[in-house]
Design a protein around this nucleic acid. Structure first.
Length: 153
DNA sequence: GCCAACGTTGGC
DNA sequence: GCCAACGTTGGC
């Protein structure tokens, strides 16, 4: 069992969008970064738990949790010329980009903001807090996961 | 809107 | 394979 943090800009796909998706489940499509792709394809397993993070908004922060319900499979948005995520170098025969499906678990009553995350020494190693971090998917340590959930109550 | 950080691209 | 230029991310 592993833990993850996944960033999304809420105007593109928010935790409320996830809640309103069929079966509260959605494909995490559109990742176009190799490091994140490798995690989607190789490391994220069914049953792994996810912090859903809103970025590029006010305030940025963790807004809830979700669960991996389908492991890595080709991201079909890369095959669609009409998609904003289209990548002609990816094909069904040789897919370059992958996605997982996540299912909504809970929404926090209040976002756990990045500024609050930074106030806790127990969370100072979180990758998402590192200066210059731009990865949209990052692993979370179990003790970080437990600590945050305990604070959320 | 700014800008630091970092990934990608492409000429050589 | 180097590296400058460029594009993107994302907090502030």
């Amino acid at each position: 069992m592993h833990y993850w943090l996944m960033k999304s800009e809420p105007h593109v796909f928010s935790i409320d969008d996830l809640i309103h998706s069929p079966k509260k489940t959605a494909g995490w499509e559109g990742v176009r970064n190799y490091q994140a792709r490798n995690m989607l394809r190789d490391d994220m397993k069914k049953g792994d738990l996810v912090f859903f993070y809103h970025s590029s908004c006010t305030p940025p922060g963790i807004v809830g949790t979700a669960e991996i319900v389908r492991e890595g499979y080709p991201d079909e948005s890369a095959f669609d010329p009409r998609s904003a995520y289209y990548d002609p170098k990816s094909s069904p025969d040789n897919p370059r980009w992958f996605q997982v499906d996540i299912k909504f678990l809970q929404k926090f009553e209040e976002p756990f903001t990045i500024s609050e995350l930074r106030t806790h020494p127990q969370l100072s190693e979180m990758i998402v807090l590192r200066k210059g971090n731009r990865l949209s998917i990052t692993p979370v340590a179990k003790k970080e996961w437990d600590f945050i959930l305990k604070l959320v109550g």
